[in-house]
C-alpha cells in the first residue's frame, strides 16, 4: 500500500466534496493499492494541519459548524513549507488573473510537488508555463475537473484515445446555460423567468453573467485548445456569444424543424481556418450533444476512432470531486 499525503486548498463546494468522498472511503483505495491521507486543509481563514492525517469527516463537520481550529499560517506559507505529496487546489476561478490559485500552484510545482486542480483560471492563463514547470520537476499537473466536472475528457484523451489524432472537440460545457435552454424549450417560458428559477434552484449564480454570456464555456474552450491541441491561446482569442438573447420563439421555430438550441463551445485547430468559438447552435434532436437539464456533453472527433461522445454531470460538489479523485489515483499509480 502506498500513502499519498494531500493538502486541500479551498473549502468551497469542490473542497467539501473531496472531503466528503474521502470520509466515505476512509481514504482507502485497494484497487489502486493506495491510501489517501489529508494532511492539511486551508481556506481564507487559515490552515488546519496534521502530518499524521486529519479526519476528513470531522474537518467537514467542524468547518460547517464554524469551529474548525486553524493555525495562523497562510495557505501560501503552508504550500511553501508543509509536508505533503500532492496539492489539491480547489479555490474559485478568477478568469482574469487566475489568483490566488495561480500563486498556490506555482509555489507547489516549484517545490517539486504534484498538483491537482479544479480551478480554470490558472490552466486557461498559464498552461504552458505550469506544465513546463511540472515537467522540469518530474511531477504531475492534472486538471480533469476544470472541463465538464465529472465528465472525463482529458483522461479519455490521455489513455483510452491515446494515439488518435484529435481533429476537433465540441460540446456543452456549462450546466447553467443548458438548464435554462432546456427549460425554455420544454415550457415555452421567456429567458428572464427561467433565469430567476435557475437562481432559486441554485443552478445559477446571483450574478449569472459569467455563465450565460458564455465566458465560463470560453475558458473551457481555451483549456481544451491549449491542452489537447497545444494552441497557446487565451480568452480574447475566442469568439463568444451567450444565450441571453435567445427567445422562446426561436426555440419553437427550431423545434418545429427537429432541432434544439444549445450553447456550444467548439475548438478545431485546422491550420489557418482554426475554429475557437462559443455560440448558440442548432443541434438535431437525435444528435449526441442534444442532452437535457444541467448535463454536459462533449463530442471528440478523432482520426481513427471517429466521433466519441461523453455525457455527464458538469458541476456539483461530489461529482467534481470524483474528477479530482481520479487525478489523485492516477498520480498514485504512476509515480
Amino acid at each position: 500500500m502506498k500513502t499519498l499525503s494531500v493538502a486541500i486548498i479551498g473549502m468551497g463546494s469542490v473542497g467539501q466534496g473531496v472531503l466528503k468522498v474521502l470520509a466515505g472511503s476512509k481514504g482507502q483505495y485497494p484497487a489502486q493499492r493506495t491510501v489517501i491521507k489529508v494532511v492539511a486543509v486551508a481556506d481564507s481563514k487559515g490552515v488546519a494541519v496534521d502530518d499524521k492525517g486529519l479526519d476528513p469527516g470531522r474537518v467537514l463537520k467542524e468547518k460547517l459548524n464554524g469551529d474548525l481550529k486553524r493555525s495562523g499560517q497562510s495557505a501560501l506559507d503552508y504550500i511553501r513549507t508543509g509536508n505533503y505529496d500532492v496539492l489539491v487546489e480547489v479555490t474559485p476561478t478568477d478568469a482574469k488573473t487566475g489568483e490566488p490559485g495561480l500563486s498556490y500552484i506555482t509555489a507547489a510545482l516549484s517545490r517539486g510537488k504534484s498538483v491537482v486542480t479544479s480551478n480554470k483560471g490558472p490552466v486557461a492563463l498559464q498552461y504552458k508555463a505550469l506544465t513546463g514547470m511540472a515537467r522540469e520537476k518530474g511531477v504531475h499537473f492534472l486538471y480533469e475537473a476544470t472541463v465538464g466536472g465529472a465528465m472525463p475528457v482529458f483522461n479519455l484523451l490521455r489513455t483510452p484515445l491515446a494515439g488518435n489524432k484529435v481533429l476537433g472537440i465540441k460540446g456543452i460545457f456549462n450546466g447553467t446555460c443548458n438548464y435554462i435552454l432546456t427549460r425554455m424549450a420544454s415550457e415555452g417560458l421567456p429567458y428572464d423567468m427561467v433565469l430567476s428559477e435557475a437562481k432559486e434552484l441554485g443552478y445559477a449564480e446571483a450574478d449569472p453573467t459569467y455563465d450565460v454570456e458564455g465566458i465560463d464555456t470560453a475558458l473551457k474552450v481555451v483549456i481544451l485548445a491549449n491542452t489537447a491541441f497545444g494552441m497557446n491561446v487565451s480568452l480574447k482569442d475566442v469568439s463568444v456569444v451567450g444565450i441571453s438573447s435567445i427567445t422562446p420563439d426561436a426555440l419553437k421555430l427550431a423545434a418545429d424543424d427537429g432541432y434544439v438550441i444549445k450553447l456550444i463551445g467548439e475548438v478545431r485547430p485546422n491550420g489557418a481556418e482554426r475554429v475557437l468559438k462559443v455560440s448558440p447552435r442548432l443541434v438535431p434532436k437525435m444528435h449526441p450533444l442534444s442532452v437535457q437539464g444541467t448535463l454536459n456533453a462533449a463530442l471528440i472527433e478523432t482520426a481513427l476512432a471517429g466521433d466519441i461522445a461523453v455525457v455527464g454531470k458538469g458541476a456539483g460538489s461530489v461529482e467534481t470531486a470524483s474528477a479530482i479523485l481520479s487525478d489523485l489515483l492516477y498520480i498514485a499509480t504512476t509515480s
Partner: peptide, 8 residues
C-alpha cells in the same frame, strides 16, 4: 443573432 447548425 445567428444560430448556426452544429455542423456548419
Amino acid at each position: 443573432l445567428v444560430i448556426e447548425p452544429i455542423n456548419s
